[in-house]
């Protein structure tokens, strides 16, 4: 039993990191007032391009850069639709999602199921003197470490810097931000692109760290979970760490339970984080906390010439 526990705790950060990266990417988007539902597609494109680059002889940093680049191309399509053309953001996001899933399936068709070496964890010797449980938790790869550091850094930038103030103002009250001299379109495009970098990193994490190969449809709804996790973490990158660990813990539990042979309702356990998020939404709605935390101008296109 303790063996299972150690193995479970050790895999949680790996499962949590993609959720965390995608969620902080979305938080940057949404704090500027843009709802990006295309994250699932961005992750898929980044995941497949990272594998293709790696299989074609590129090393890991190049694979990560390739993934980010591919994710950014798709993010730019979304930014053009949502910010420049001011199409309804839910629709623009869904188009981005389907485009990403379609393109990744097309690109990855001839690279499916080919294993790559991927990104390996830090040398185990570094953690040898620690208790095994702690060593298991700390012995992760650099991208996973980056996810947790980035969450804190993004939280600091959003909440405690001038740039963050402008970003939040754009999301809370775009007309006021515009009147105060913030370029709303530029700020929003910047936020969407910066968020796209993190969403793409989440995708590269899935293949380079998680599976070490590409399978069509392997993002499997993780991007959508990130959309819900933004609400769960109430638009705070710091609370996103806790939310990601919760979903990561449940996801990491499932393979352990399956391999342990215990007779447990696996699907009900997998359902539990979704139910927990729904319950959280409803309860916090009752106490008015979530709705108050939501950026007031979320998903509302802004045009100076348009009076509201």
């Amino acid at each position: 039993m303790s063996g299972i526990l150690t193995a479970w705790l050790g895999t949680i950060p790996t499962f949590a990191a993609p959720f965390l990266l995608a969620t902080i990417g979305l938080i940057i988007n949404e704090r500027a007032g843009v709802m990006n539902l295309g994250v699932e597609g961005i992750m898929a494109v980044a995941a497949v391009v990272a594998v293709i680059v790696n299989l074609s002889g590129g090393d890991i940093p190049l694979a990560i850069l390739g993934g980010i680049g591919a994710g950014l191309v798709l993010t730019a399509v979304f930014a053009f639709m949502a910010v420049v053309l001011r199409i309804e953001q839910v629709l623009a996001g869904l188009v981005t999602f389907a485009l990403g899933i379609g393109v990744s399936g097309y690109l990855g068709d001839s690279f499916e199921n080919q294993p790559i070496t991927g990104l390996s964890p830090l040398p185990a010797a570094w953690f040898a003197h620690l208790p095994p449980v702690l060593a298991g938790i700390l012995d992760q790869d650099l991208l996973t470490y980056f996810a947790f550091v980035a969450a804190v850094a993004i939280w600091f930038v959003i909440e405690h810097t001038d740039l963050g103030l402008r970003l939040r103002a754009t999301g809370e009250d775009a007309p006021a931000a515009d009147a105060a001299g913030v370029s709303v379109p530029l700020m929003r495009i910047g936020a969407v692109m910066a968020g796209g970098v993190f969403c793409a990193l989440a995708g590269t994490h899935l293949t380079l760290v998680g599976s070490h190969l590409w399978v069509d449809g392997m993002v499997a709804g993780r991007g959508w979970i990130a959309v819900a996790m933004v609400t769960l973490s109430r638009w705070s990158a710091l609370r996103a760490i806790a939310a990601a660990l919760l979903f990561g813990a449940v996801e990491a539990l499932v393979p352990q339970l399956l391999s342990s042979g215990l007779n447990v309702p696996v699907y009900l356990i997998e359902m539990s984080p979704y139910l927990a998020t729904l319950a959280y939404l409803l309860i916090s709605g009752f106490f008015q906390t979530t709705a108050d935390a939501q950026p007031a101008d979320l998903a509302r296109p802004y045009l100076r010439e348009e009076r509201r």
Binding site: V77, I87, V95, F97, A98, L99
Partner: peptide, 16 residues
């Protein structure tokens, strides 16, 4: 997945 990409392209053009 190509069909999905085709549908997305159609919707992209119509909504643009």
């Amino acid at each position: 997945a190509t069909v999905l990409a085709i549908e997305a392209t159609l919707l992209l053009c119509v909504s643009s």
